[in-house]
């Protein structure tokens, strides 16, 4: 039996998109989507954790007794989150200063556990990795879209903090070179937590409209 990778991709990116359809992992999605750079980094870390945990869970799935499956899955997820957190402090220290709190919270992102539990613990290794990667990419795209919209509407800027991604001693770039500033101050509401819900609600409405008119 050949695995339907195309189907997995369609599920992760659109049909069963973790954020827009399953409505999972909304805590980090809403909390960190204040600037595009923050959102994107968190999305990438989530993508890594999802793929890695799906791989490891799928590897040991034959040994997962149902009595210990959940704690084991959480342990595996927490392991990769810790590794990712350390990696972020290693390479992107100043970014970590800003979103570190939410990186640790990826452990509680239901998307990760849901994929481990409902997919990786029942499917072959390669399919599980593809599933994790596609679900992670689906989450990444949504958080990029949401944080991009919120940064533009809420602060009137785009790419704020991008300079922190590059080592200033090597590249010599500052935020002034990279940040796009729009000619307005931004709507405060969009940056505040209620704005996260409102913006996300609009995204959901747009997604539902698109699906009905396909």
């Amino acid at each position: 039996m050949s695995t339907d990778y195309r189907g997995l991709a369609a599920d992760g990116l659109w049909l069963k998109n973790p954020a827009l359809v399953q409505l999972l992992g909304l805590c980090p999605l809403l909390a960190v989507s204040t600037t595009l750079v923050n959102g994107t980094i968190l999305g990438i870390v989530t993508l890594f954790v999802l793929t890695a945990s799906n791989l490891l869970i799928s590897l040991v799935k034959d040994f997962l007794d149902e009595r210990i499956r959940l704690p084991l899955q959480i342990m595996v997820i927490a392991t990769f989150v810790t590794c990712a957190d350390l990696a972020l402090q290693h390479w992107l220290f100043e970014i970590h200063q800003r979103i570190g709190l939410f990186v640790a919270l990826i452990v509680t992102n239901c998307t990760v556990l849901a994929r481990a539990e409902s997919f990786a613990s029942r499917n072959p290794i390669r399919a599980s990795v593809v599933d994790g990667f596609m679900m992670g990419t689906g989450f990444l795209l949504v958080i990029m879209l949401l944080s991009g919209i919120r940064e533009i509407l809420g602060q009137g800027t785009l790419f704020q903090g991008l300079a922190l991604v590059f080592d200033p001693q090597i590249f010599g770039i500052t935020d002034a070179d990279l940040v796009i500033r729009f000619n307005f101050d931004g709507l405060l509401l969009v940056i505040l937590p209620p704005g996260a819900f409102l913006t996300f609600g609009c995204l959901l409405a747009a997604k539902n409209w698109l699906m009905q008119h396909e």
Partner: peptide, 8 residues
């Protein structure tokens, strides 16, 4: 399950 737990 105990062995799985310990190894993992």
């Amino acid at each position: 399950p105990l062995i799985t737990f310990i190894v993992l």
